[in-house]
Amino acid sequence: MSNTSENPNPSSSSAKITLKTSDNELFEVEEAVAMKFCTVKQYFEDEKDNDVAARGSSTVIPLPNVHSAVLARLISYCKKLPQSNAVADNHEEEETKKKERKQYGTPGDLVDLISAANYLDFKEGLEFFNQALADHIQNKSVEYVRKFFGIKGDFEPHEEEKYREEYAWAFEGVDED
């Protein structure tokens, strides 16, 4: 099974690289896109050194830690990659970026996207999704955050209560879960 046609412009002559996900899906992506993933880049360059690259795009790079659904999201993010992840120059820009982050990150997928971006050593993506997740949890209750990350609270109830009293101000202004 192959997920080709990532390139909307068939006349383009740019080189393609094939990536194979954990669920054995094949993705043929433009070299420029694939090279954003440093893990892939490294693999690709190592192969080149071994003179295997002579076989061209027949090289398939396995990504055993990335599921196809996640890789598809990362590739689509890569293609629409906002010009830069640099900190917004002004307030307006920051708001636009916030909205953008909301669009990309369905909260439930963010952890998977972050893990994959980390594995692929995809710096811009990692920063982007980390910020999206930080945006998402900043107005949430402790209980929500625990549930979201699948964490069990392991403080003694009296410890936690004391802490919450001491830092009451940090527990204000929480959205409905």
Binding site: N130, Q131, L133, A134, D135, I137, Q138, V142, V145, R146, F149, I151, K152, G153, D154, F155, E160, Y163, R164, Y167, W169, A170, F171
Partner: peptide, 15 residues
């Protein structure tokens, strides 16, 4: 990446 004010709340999540 969360605002400083929220950091103490995050400390409460788990050890």
């Amino acid at each position: 990446r969360v605002p400083a004010k929220i950091v103490p709340r995050c400390k409460c999540v788990c050890k």
